[in-house]
């Protein structure tokens, strides 16, 4: 596909799906929404505070999107990630992938979310119903360090 589109955004605003402008020429379009669950570690939460290293996160999101376009021959990648407080039930992540074939679109979507969780400096703090706010436990160190740093 000519002129692939890569769009990344960190925003405090509620996420909405971008209009498709009736462009279904790609062949396969996958939308993925990541939403804040009602429970965190078995406890009810009001929502999650997302903190980002904004400049670095935007750069890393763009790198992930660019690499995905190249790796999966995509026509478009849109990644929108919310920061600030996100209530339970609301979306924290929107991803749209366009490709010629569904296999590439699905595989690229999963790859992008995996890479995002590995490389993009965003952190979350659940706000529990009782008002207690604790940091989410860190992942095990080995799995958390990007391969480029090993």
């Amino acid at each position: 596909m000519a002129n692939p589109v890569c769009e990344v955004l960190l925003t405090k605003a509620r996420l909405e799906a971008p209009k498709l402008n009736a462009d279904f020429s790609a062949g396969a379009i996958v939308d993925f929404w990541g939403t804040v669950r009602q429970l965190e570690d078995g406890r009810e939460i009001e929502g999650i505070d997302y903190e980002a290293h904004e400049v670095m996160a935007t750069h890393q999101l763009q790198s992930v999107a660019d690499e995905a376009v190249s790796k999966f021959a995509l026509g478009a990648v849109i990644i929108h990630h919310r920061i600030g407080f996100v209530s339970a039930g609301e979306a924290s992540l929107f991803l749209q992938v366009k490709a010629r074939r569904r296999q590439a679109a699905f595989e690229a979507s999963e790859w992008i979310v995996d890479e995002l969780k590995r490389k993009v400096p965003i952190w979350k703090r659940p706000k529990f119903r009782a008002g207690e706010r604790i940091s989410k436990p860190e992942k095990k160190p080995e799995s958390a360090i990007p391969a480029t740093m090993k």
Binding site: Y50, L116, R118, P121, W123, K124, E138, A144, T148
Partner: peptide, 22 residues
């Protein structure tokens, strides 16, 4: 950057816990 990276005078260094986006 990895632990062997030579810090440059103009670098702004970020010290971060494992990322948790998505």
């Amino acid at each position: 950057v990895d632990r062997n990276y030579k810090v440059q005078p103009t670098d702004e260094i970020s010290i971060m816990p494992p990322v948790q986006g998505g």
